Computed example of a mutant assay.
Amino acid sequence: MRDLFLLSERQMARISPYFPLSHGVPRVDDRRVVSGIVYVIKHGLQWKDAPQDYGPHKTLCNRFMRWSRLGVFDRIFAGLAGAGPKPERIMIDATHLKAHRTAASLLSKRGCSRRIGRTRGGLDSKLHTVCDGEGRPLVMLLSDGQMSDHKGARLMLGALPPAKALIADRGYDSTPFRQALLAKGVEPCIPSSRSRKIPFPYDNALYRQRHRIENLFARLKDWRRVATRYDRCAHTFFSAICIAAAVIFWL
C-alpha cells in the first residue's frame, strides 16, 4: 500500500478479539478496512476521499458507522487501556474540541444530546480525560462544551483506577472532590484556588508532571477529525477519539 497506513499483524491480533462475529457472508478484509478508517480519521478526510487502496469508501464509512453504534471502538480502547500496567499516579483534565458546521445541531430528533454546547468560542464538545503517569489515556468522557470540569470529574469518579495520587490543576479544587479522592485512597495533588483563605499543601515537584496530560491532548488533536468534530452523532465522534487514543498510545 505505498506509504499508506496499515495496521501490523501484531496490532490486529490485539484488537480483533473485540470485533463482532461475522454472520452469513464473510466480511471484507478487516485489516484493510480498519486501517482505512484510521487513515481517514487521522487526515480529516471525507469518506469519499479515502485512497482507493483501502477499497470502496462506502465500505469504510458503513463499517465505521455500524461498529460505532455497537460500541466496538469504545471496547477496543477500554480493553487495551485496562490491560496496561497499573498506574501509581493519575492525572485528570479536559479540553475543548471545535464543532464544525456539519455537526452543529444541538439536539437530535429524539431529543438526545449530541454532546455539543455553546461556549464563548462557539459550538464545541468537551473531552474529559484521566491518564496515567506516562500520559496515556485510561478513562475518557465526552460532554457538552459548557460542562464544568467539576461535573465531569464527578461523573468519572467511579471509573478512576486505583492510584496513590491524582494530579490536577486548580480548576478541580473543591472540598467534595478532595474528600471523594481521599475516601478512595488517592492523595490529591491539586493547587488551591485563589479564593481559599487557607490553601491546601501539595507536592510541587509531582505537580510538574501535569504537562504530560497536556501533551496527550496535543497528540490527539494532531488527528484532524478529533481536533475538529465533523460527526453529528456523539457516539461516532467518540468512536473516532477512541480509535485515535488506541492507535497512538496503546498499539
Rank of each mutant, 00 (worst) to 15 (best):
L45W: 12
V34Q: 06
A13F: 00
P17Y: 08
L21E: 14
S16R: 14
V33Q: 02
G36L: 01
S22P: 02
V25I: 13
Y39T: 10
V34W: 08
W47D: 03
Y18D: 07
S16N: 05
I37K: 00
I41E: 09
I41V: 15
V28C: 07
R31F: 02
H23D: 08
V38S: 07
G44N: 09
H43P: 02
P17T: 08
P17M: 09
V28K: 11
I41T: 04
R31T: 06
F19D: 00
L45N: 13
Q46C: 12
R31Q: 15
P17W: 09
L21I: 05
K42I: 06
I41S: 01
K42M: 13
H43A: 08
H43N: 15
G24D: 08
S22I: 07
V38L: 10
R31W: 01
V28G: 03
P26N: 10
Y18N: 05
P20K: 09
F19R: 01
F19M: 05
R27Y: 03
V34G: 06
H23E: 13
D30A: 14
I41G: 01
K42G: 11
P20A: 08
Y39D: 13
Y18E: 10
F19K: 01
G36S: 07
R31Y: 02
G24F: 03
G36D: 12
V34D: 04
D30R: 12
I37L: 10
L45I: 13
L45F: 10
A13I: 00
